[in-house]
């Protein structure tokens, strides 16, 4: 288990003047790396933020931290330059990064540059006697597939929220990485507007619990029931495409084939019939509970607990019952 596994940890975009944090998924990729080898981190961000970010990486289990300073306004190419340099330096058996916009962009560029095997949207990594394998859940969770590199380091992006293992914190061992810029053309980030934090709810992509609402909620106002239940459970809020199309919630909350694919511990579906495209995005949840008035709704075919009834009666009662249990 001493083979180095390189992880790519990026500074999240930050508003002008604000210090960036590590982008989502850092703890997960380091946890996944620790399962198959020695987690090494490449931390990429603006120069001034690197010491703090490197410390965070070590606290999340990176046994060695390489830092690379980039102009974060330049998208794609500079991160790929840094990652290629780190791969040359570390000679890792595998390279892991979150399946985020920036993670996927870097993975794609580096895979092309190194002609390396690329596994995208993996839900787990494992080791067998031949090396590191990436596990995938494909066609909406209907199939499990494993892939491996035939030569060269396996480059894999990990689906956010899919890896539970966390690596132990270690003392930081940090050094700066020399990066030769290729000067490839890059798109430019002109500005960044932090999302208004309407609530302290967890992020849908990586949440352990999700309460999701569908057309059954009937209106934008009544969708608040889903939010109340989510808050009672400390869960993220999701929605079906029907609820999004009806304008109850923002599209960023859409779960399903064409929205976000999630794999939480708990998925509680409220007023969602469970069209095949919705199920494709959530059926790998460990526990599924469904509340819907239609006993024939397909969501009940995959629910661990299904309740046929009026959500407008049940959900307020459930919120009260959960509050009561909390004391």
């Amino acid at each position: 288990m001493t083979q180095p596994i390189l992880t790519l940890l990026l500074a999240a975009p930050a508003a002008e003047g604000a210090e960036p944090r590590l982008a989502d998924g850092a703890a997960e990729v380091l946890g996944a790396a620790a399962l198959v080898g020695a987690p090494v981190a490449l931390v990429v961000g603006p120069e001034s933020a690197l010491p703090a970010l490197a410390e965070t990486a070590a606290s999340l289990g990176a046994t060695e931290v390489l830092t690379a300073s980039v102009d974060t306004a330049q998208l794609g190419a500079p991160v790929a330059d840094a990652l290629a340099a780190a791969i040359a330096e570390v000679a890792p058996e595998a390279v892991l990064m979150p399946h985020s916009i920036e993670g996927a962009d870097a993975a794609g560029r580096v895979a092309v540059r190194l002609r390396a095997p690329l596994s995208v949207d993996a839900v787990a990594v494992e080791r067998d006697e031949e090396g590191v394998l990436a596990k995938h859940s494909v066609y909406g969770g209907a199939y499990d597939v494993s892939s491996a590199a035939s030569a060269g380091p396996l480059i894999a992006t990990l689906r956010l929220g899919s890896v539970d293992h966390r690596a132990e914190a270690v003392a930081p061992a940090v050094r700066a990485l020399e990066v030769a810029s290729t000067g490839r053309p890059a798109a430019v980030a002109e500005s960044f507007e932090p999302a208004a934090q309407a609530s302290e709810r967890p992020d849908l992509r990586s949440a352990k619990k999700i309460v999701s609402g569908g057309r059954g909620l009937g209106s934008k106002e009544q969708f608040a029931l889903v939010e109340q239940l989510a808050d009672a459970l400390g869960a993220a809020v999701g929605a079906s495409r029907a609820a999004v199309d009806a304008g109850y919630v923002d599209q960023s909350l859409q779960v399903g084939q064409t929205g976000t694919s999630v794999a939480p511990e708990l998925y509680l579906a409220v007023g969602i019939s469970g069209a095949i495209q919705h199920r494709a995005g959530m059926q790998t949840a460990k526990t599924i509970i469904a509340i819907d008035k239609d006993a024939n709704a397909p969501i009940f075919e995959i629910a661990d607990l299904g309740v046929v009834g009026d959500l407008f009666t049940i959900v307020p009662q459930l919120v009260a019952a959960l509050e009561a249990r909390k004391g």
Binding site: A12, P13, L75, I101, E102, A189, F192
Partner: peptide, 12 residues
């Protein structure tokens, strides 16, 4: 585009 924690304006 929607990225970690906010909206980024990009151009190329």
């Amino acid at each position: 585009r929607e990225t970690d924690g906010g909206t980024q304006a990009v151009t190329a």
